[in-house]
């Protein structure tokens, strides 16, 4: 038999009964949006004098996260929400990197602009065209996302593929945290998109390796 929530805790699901049938219950929609913020790995709720959201997060700009969560709450709740953060940076945080997606790549006037998304965040970076410029713009967009990406470009180079497939792009990036080098190759409809994909893959590879190392340390 499960233990009922204490008086200070709140069973939120019934509140959704007042919601629109085409909409998620308000607390559910809010919780989903909060869980989508980079670094958030758990969300809990308390109803005391004011509604309180307790977030477990992994070291991704805590003050920015707090204000973003409060901002999101205003779209769903009329009552004030306080946000309590507990930093779980380390093992668990290493596995909480939200996937980065390409929103748009614009090439114009000798410049490439890469727009990336991760959860609710959007980051933009610009640099010159070609594989190196696009890779650099992607790294700047990752920085702009504010998700703790910390990589530097070492090499970005186009590779001619067999038959008439065109060009793939190989990148090598360095993890600023430990100086380790990571390589990736990607092929897409343009050299710029290939470079962006390769950088993102290399970045996510760093995240996966961090997770593996963290899990080994636990064992």
């Amino acid at each position: 038999m499960s233990v009922p929530a204490s008086s200070e805790e709140v069973r939120l699901a019934p509140l959704g009964d007042s919601g629109d049938e085409d909409e998620s219950p308000p607390f559910d929609a809010l919780e989903l949006e909060i869980r989508r913020l980079p670094g958030v790995v758990a969300v809990g709720w308390h109803r005391g004098e004011a509604m309180r959201a307790c977030l477990s997060v992994g070291g991704f700009g805590l003050s920015a996260l707090r204000s973003r969560a409060v901002q999101l709450a205003r779209g769903h709740l009329d009552e004030p929400l306080s946000v309590e953060l507990s930093d779980v940076e380390g093992v668990f945080a290493a596995s909480s990197v939200a996937s980065v997606r390409i929103i748009d790549i614009l090439v114009a006037g000798g410049e490439v602009e890469v727009r990336l998304g991760a959860g609710h965040l959007i980051g933009t970076g610009r640099a010159g065209t070609g594989p190196e410029g696009a890779a650099l713009a992607t790294i700047r967009a990752l920085d702009d996302l504010g998700i703790g990406a910390s990589i530097e470009l070492r090499i970005a180079s186009a590779v001619v593929l067999p038959s008439d497939l065109g060009l793939a792009v190989v990148v090598s990036v360095v993890d600023r945290h430990d100086g380790s080098e990571h390589r990736s190759i990607a092929y897409a409809s343009s050299v710029e998109e290939s470079a962006a994909k390769a950088v993102i893959e290399a970045y996510e590879l760093i995240g996966e390796q961090s997770r593996d190392q963290a899990q080994s340390a636990i064992r």
């Binding site: 233990v3 929530a5 758990a42 809990g44 477990s56 309590e84």
Partner: peptide, 8 residues
């Protein structure tokens, strides 16, 4: 966590 309690 059950009952939407904080994980902390």
């Amino acid at each position: 966590r059950s009952a939407r309690r904080p994980i902390g």
